[in-house]
Amino acid sequence: MILAPFTLHRPESLAEALSLAAKLPDGGYDWIGGGTDLLQNYKNRLNAKDHVIALDRVPEMRGISAERIGAGERLAVISESAVVRERWPGLAEAITHVASPLIRNSGTLGGNLLVETRCYYFNQTPFWRGTKGSCMKAESDECLVVPQKEICYAAYSGDLAPILGVLSATLELASPAGTREVRIDEFYAGDGIRKNVKRADEIIVGVKVPAEASTLRAGYRKLRHRDALDYPEMGCAAALRLDPSGRIELLRAATTAVDVVPHFLDFSELMRGQEPDTAFAEVAAAMEERAQPKKNTSMPVGYRKKMVRVYLGRLLDDLRAGRTEGRIPAA
């Protein structure tokens, strides 16, 4: 397949990357990390830009430490890293749910957080879209899922936002105008087209994880047809800490792929001191209720919604019992 054409830039530092961005017209370029998401869309000629700026040589986006993961780090490297496995085993295991091992060797953390929203009518070839008249996230001005012209319901389908959200991670953003930090659970907003609060000229440089995260039990569960390759049909994460008497002290939950943005809810205050069993059921039900999947992925909407409760309930039970999915082989 022939990609949409572009000019490629490969800056060697964050400053160079940002100054390139400053020179190019707003919205006239895309950043590229591993390219495993972006290039699918360029192959399908979806919203391609004239310029692409590669971030793979930006040193500021590298490094994995006890506080921070560079956004340019490859997913496989992150999940294999001793620091991550030790401090945030739930994240290491969640990463094994992303795409496939081959893709995780290229795909980056930043790219995963910014993975394009997905929809049956959008993730198709130009020929296919031509037969349907295309939609407003691509070439036309109307939604084909929910016929109207305002909101795009493409599903946010990244696997890692939920787990990073429940760990209270924060994004380091840099732009020609300066830097800022945004909590992941406040980052996603809008609809399938305006997906988050990031401006086009901003780069995710790194992801900061608070010290507290390593004291939590956290994990991610994913609904999909096949263990590998498939984007989530629903995904849920939770973080948990029980007090010495076995009651809830901290409980956060998140879901992905059941709305245009991931959902994050912190139940700690509400549930503090409660018995896990009742709390878990309520949390799972509350997250299910918030889920609003649309008919634009492979599995039926009702089923995806219903599975929030089942998967999240099981995840919470597993967290309490200290069970993992065993997806990471012993060293």
Binding site: Y120, N123, T125, T131, H225, R226, D227, Y231, S298
Partner: peptide, 17 residues
């Protein structure tokens, strides 16, 4: 129109299945 003309959407079991 063929709804799922790709290996992502036409689901073939993988080694784990």
């Amino acid at each position: 129109t063929v709804g799922n003309p790709s290996f992502l959407d036409y689901k073939i079991p993988g080694p784990l299945e």
